[in-house]
């Protein structure tokens, strides 16, 4: 009876560790992008063998994207506290025409973000579009503001998402970026270790 009980607990534990399904895999597909320092990065190759926490932003967004970015920061701080390493944070802009490497660098600097394991990515519009299409993120320009000097900026209707990608480059779980539960994703990261 006791043995059956232990077996049940072991099976349950094993089941919990394995329960994150594979949503999408990058496989052999890779994308040439640039980081906030204008350094070329091949995604997802440059984060191979690491667990990746990724969100999708545009820096003209003053509300939802900063919320998602701040949640990434909270996850990063929590992982540091729990001494969980081998995790890379990635923020990809789907508005690369505005979000140049310099703009992304300033976006990170003004928030005092720790970029030791966090990369901001941008690139050709066609490439960033291909990435978000593969990962299931939608971003469509909608309303805009025209400044007195004629400058025009667009706001996107976009998927509010943080994704968990395993060391084999497979997307394992989607979360709502602006309202993510930090405990939940940290628990999921532990399952992938």
């Amino acid at each position: 009876m006791k043995l059956r009980h232990y077996l049940f607990v072991i099976i349950l534990f094993w089941g919990c560790k394995e329960k994150l399904p594979v949503i999408e895999k990058f496989g052999e597909t890779s994308y040439k992008l640039v980081d906030q320092n204008n350094k070329e990065e091949i995604f997802p190759d440059f984060v191979k063998d690491k667990i990746v926490i990724m969100n999708y932003i545009f820096t003209n967004c003053p509300d939802i994207c900063p919320l998602s970015t701040n949640n990434m920061r909270l996850i990063q701080e929590r992982l540091k506290k729990e001494k969980i390493d081998n995790v890379q944070f990635v923020s990809l802009s789907f508005d690369p025409e505005f979000d140049t490497p310099e703009v992304l660098r300033k976006f990170a600097d003004i928030r005092n973000l720790d970029l030791s394991n966090w990369t901001f990515l941008t690139g050709d519009k066609s490439t960033t579009n291909s990435v978000i299409k593969q990962v299931g993120v939608l971003a469509v320009p909608s309303d805009s503001t025209v400044f007195k000097n004629g400058r025009k900026i667009y706001y996107y209707v976009h998927t509010d998402r943080i994704q968990l990608i395993d060391p084999e480059g497979r997307i394992r779980k989607n979360y709502k970026g602006s309202t993510i539960n930090v405990d939940e994703i940290v628990s999921d990261i532990k399952k992938l270790q």
Binding site: Y155, H158, D160
Partner: peptide, 29 residues
Amino acid sequence: DRMGMRPAGKIAIKPKSKFEFKPGGFHVM
């Protein structure tokens, strides 16, 4: 899971009430 942002025009604040401008909702941009 898709979010957008749009100009909100004027906001009426009812008597003896509070209106919160908060992340993910109304704000002054």
